[in-house]
Amino acid sequence: MHVKQVNIPLTDEAIADLRMGDHVALSGKLFTAGDAAHKKLVQYIGQGRQLPFSLVNQVFYYAVGTPPPPERIIGSAGPTTATRLDCYTPALLAQGLKGVVGKGYRSAEVAQAMRDHRAVYFGAVGGVAAILSQYVKHVRLAAFPELGAEAVYEYTVVDFPVVVINDIHGGDLHLEGRKVYAVTQD
């Protein structure tokens, strides 16, 4: 299995090289964001306020982890459904966000907005949160502590395993992968 090594912040060259179905090992910083953090970030943008951290060339991880047990920096942290965050995504792309890690469908509008902004949608496997948390080496509270578990955390990751779902060339693994394996119904 060939795995492409990709560092964050993302570069235009790295993004252009990625194709639907590629296995990618992400290293660098991922910002966690769930529903509440998205709502707040988009409110900031709407009010013209400066964001608590820069989104330029950054990658969001759609995740709200479990509380860390004693002696651990993190509990379990797998991806949540991207579809719920579709309504917020275009505004964040306009701020320079270049990648998101999640699971589940993106709307046609968001897929198009990601192509327009030359951003990539990476899929992590849902339901394997215990192993995914092993790739997180450091955790820092980045914004919105008042949101508790839903605050934005900066995860420093090494070789975090994802697959390219939507590339900037029009590829969409969720739509095209199934066509390969579909069997005509009797």
């Binding site: 699971k103 589940g104 496997v125 199934r178």
Partner: peptide, 13 residues
Amino acid sequence: NKLGIGPMGRGGR
């Protein structure tokens, strides 16, 4: 399983 959606919707049986 004939729909082709597969594990995590990435295509499969």
